[in-house]
């Protein structure tokens, strides 16, 4: 940290000199900055302008002030979609992190055919979402012939409706996302595990620490930067969940799997209510921003190893 501060003060040259020193860098940055401005900054700002208009694709656009924002606060469906998204995160984030970590521990444990298992665990990540979702929908078919229903039938459990049941559908969709994403969190954790110095483990062993203790006192805390990164990425991913609802349930039954992104897609591209969709996307943006800031405050601190 200290080193950083020193650097900053040393770099405080007059603007002109700094510019001359780095001019060539800026030159090479120009193309990418132009691209960034056109495809990122402009849509971002313009969509904010959209929220105050009744924007039509062709023809006259009308200024309507805060109409869409006020409607957002009264729109029960939007709040239901936000709640569904929140519940989805609850079902999704911790299991994805836990399963990713467990898988990473397995392939890091020196088990035989570790490379093979790594490939198997990673397979859902590289498979097209549409394919994985199709398989998932087939596994969790709500009729007696669905595979999972057949399996639980062996234990005498009644066939479940799964995606056709408003109290189960969201959990089944979360399961799909966990299955799809856990492989990539595994890779992050695997990299994290590799970077923990071996001598810490040796020292612990010499001190006679049990395997559990080693995990909770060394491995888990030293993975903190990875926890932070994975937590942010899965949180953002969970707030942006869209495709599984789009592919498997169409947002139903009775809006129980309508997530905020699914809802804004419907508003924007089915109902052509682009201004209101922009409001929803800003609401989502602020939520993700706030959650990320909170996460950064609480789990994002640097971990000093020694």
């Amino acid at each position: 940290m200290k080193k950083n501060k020193n650097n900053k003060t040393r770099n405080k040259l007059p603007f002109k000199e700094r510019f001359r020193k780095n001019a060539i860098v800026y030159l090479f940055l120009i193309p990418i900055l132009i691209h960034f401005a056109i495809f990122q900054v402009f849509p971002f700002l313009f969509s904010f302008v959209l929220t105050f208009m009744d924007w039509r694709i062709i023809g006259n656009h009308e200024w309507v002030g805060l109409k869409h924002w006020i409607y957002f606060f009264q729109d029960k469906l939007a709040w239901k979609a936000l709640w569904n998204t929140f519940m989805f995160s609850v079902y999704y984030i911790v299991p994805t992190m836990a399963i990713g970590l467990i898988l990473a521990l397995i392939i890091n444990s020196g088990v035989r055919f570790a490379g093979f298992f790594k490939g198997i665990f990673f397979l859902p990540v590289v498979t097209s979402f549409v394919i994985v979702a199709g398989l998932w929908g087939w596994l969790f078919g709500g009729t007696e012939s669905g595979l999972i229903n057949w399996l639980i039938g062996l234990f005498g459990v009644e066939p479940q409706l799964f995606l056709a049941d408003s109290s189960q559908a969201l959990i089944v969709l979360a399961g799909l996302s966990i299955f799809k994403v856990a492989g990539s969190t595994m890779i992050y954790y695997f990299a994290g595990l590799q970077s923990i110095p071996k001598d810490l483990y040796e020292a612990a062993k010499i001190d006679g620490a049990s395997k559990m203790k080693i995990f909770w006192k060394i491995t888990f805390p030293l993975l903190k930067p990875i926890h932070f990164y994975v937590a942010i990425v899965t949180t953002i991913g969970s707030f942006q969940i869209f495709d599984s609802a789009y592919l498997l349930t169409g947002g139903g039954p009775n809006y129980s799997t309508t997530t905020i992104v699914f809802y804004l897609y419907q508003q924007g591209f089915t109902n052509l209510n682009l201004s209101y969709a922009a409001v929803l996307s800003y609401a989502l943006f602020f939520i993700i921003l706030i959650v990320s800031l909170i996460q950064r405050k609480y789990i994002g601190k640097d971990t000093a190893i020694y």
Binding site: G141, G142, G146
Partner: peptide, 14 residues
């Protein structure tokens, strides 16, 4: 109609 008809997208397999 099948039990999953509430949200089913297709019943091709059946």
């Amino acid at each position: 109609i099948p039990e999953d008809s509430i949200t089913a997208m297709e019943h091709d397999a059946i």
